[in-house]
Design a protein around this nucleic acid. Structure first.
Lengths: 126, 126
DNA sequence: TTTATTGTCTTATGCACCTAAGACAATATC
DNA sequence: GATATTGTCTTAGGTGCATAAGACAATAAA
């Protein structure tokens, strides 16, 4: 997968978030085998301890299942995945509106401006 | 002003952003006198060196003007303030849509979901 | 049974940031 | 002219994170 790391924040939460998004977006399917810590660390260009931390958190989230010597797999619990996806979306929307309001826009203005951007640029650009 | 500091990121950029938002939102008017570093630091509950760093950055942004012994004031350049406000809004919108897409939604879906939230909850709630 | 793989634990090192607090030059204020 | 204010610079110490790399138990694979 593609990594996008920002040195203004700690790395392990970013790894956690990005893997989480990949799972809820269906990039990794429920039940899929998952790369080893060492491989994934190398792929992302981070130390294996850092990736280890992210994986442990994702296990705590219930998204990854660990089998001591046979590696990890994505959870089979599709309801959990959907629930997390919707929670992330909700937080994202609220955060967007909050920030626009802190700039001095109303929520309606914020939504209308976003609408205008999507109409101009199309769905898949950016 | 009200401070909202998060220990998952460095503090000085957060101070910078929050002061910047307060200025573009009109909470501080163009030409207004600005509190001293020491006062503002105490108000925010941070060390004065940390606040100093944020102020220096804001001066670099052109939003604050420093007079060595008489303190600081907000810039008179209303065009600059407006320009920064619009840039922040633009970035915010793009960021919102990017994140929703990374969760597996289309840009249109993202906007519609945001629309639904504002309709339900009203402008000034949260 | 032997070997390799995998997750995990541990110790050590370096770095960036925050805090703390002293000091000083420029200048507004009295 | 004396004093206080203000921004700024400096040194010191503590903390959390990332890196690096060795080690080990459990177990899959040969």
């Amino acid at each position: 997968m593609e990594w996008n790391l920002d040195d203004s924040r700690s790395i392990w939460p970013q790894l956690r978030e990005q893997i989480m998004r990949a799972i809820v977006a269906g990039e990794y399917k429920p039940g899929d085998a998952f790369p080893t810590v060492r491989d994934l660390a190398q792929d992302a260009g981070v130390n294996r301890n850092t990736m280890q931390r992210a994986m442990a958190e994702l296990e705590g989230d219930g998204l990854l299942i660990t089998n001591r010597t046979s590696g990890r797999k994505v959870t089979d619990d599709q309801k959990l995945i959907l629930k997390i996806k919707e929670e992330l979306a909700q937080k994202n929307i609220e955060n967007f509106i909050d920030e626009m309001q802190s700039l001095g826009y109303t929520a309606e203005e914020a939504v209308k401006m976003a609408e205008r951007v999507t109409e101009k640029k199309g769905v898949n650009d950016k």
